[in-house]
Design a protein around this nucleic acid. Structure first.
Length: 154
DNA sequence: GCCAACGTTGGC
DNA sequence: GCCAACGTTGGC
């Protein structure tokens, strides 16, 4: 199957690339996604073997900071059932889970981070939802062209 | 099913 | 901390 590319946003104060670097097996469940469009992409389109950029949002310098690989396809996000979790969803049941996550594996932490500011100046990246004002999607597709363009900047 | 009110995201 | 964008909720 042809490898697809994605971008995953995370607030570094919640979960950073270093948290992933230091995680057991450098692997984690990408939990907490609570947006239907983002969920649908994870659940319906992401495949094991796909690559995703790790993006730090809501921070001083928003930027792509690394690369991860999807190592487990979508399954119910356990935090939706955890009453003590910030991500608890009272309307979700194990019979009818509402939210899904994938597992990601650390691949690379970039020596050069690719800031949002820089990406906005690159014409080849102008179609990315990321660089458009007001975009809030936390999971978004990246084209092969955009992927190689960004990897050439690293 | 419309749409106003409200809440959240996330850059700045 | 502000606020634009936009998703969600709930009254009707």
């Amino acid at each position: 199957m042809k490898r697809q590319y994605w971008l995953l946003k995370s607030e570094p104060t919640t979960f950073s690339i270093d948290d992933l670097l230091n995680a057991p097996s450098q692997r984690t469940g990408w939990d907490g996604v609570r947006n239907y469009q983002a969920r649908n992409m994870m659940r319906d389109e992401m495949n094991v073997g796909d690559f995703a950029f790790f993006y730090h949002s809501n921070t001083q310098t928003p930027a792509i900071v690394g690369l991860v690989e999807i190592v487990k396809a979508a399954y119910p996000d356990p935090t939706q059932f955890d009453i003590h979790s910030d991500y608890y969803d009272p309307k979700a049941t194990s019979e009818h889970p509402r939210w899904f996550q994938v597992d990601v594996q650390f691949k690379e932490k970039f020596n050069t981070i690719i800031s949002l500011e820089r990406m906005k100046t690159i014409p080849a990246l102008s179609e990315m939802p990321l660089v458009r004002k007001g975009n809030r999607l936390s999971v978004m597709p990246v084209t092969t062209f955009e992927f190689t363009t960004i990897m050439d900047l690293v």
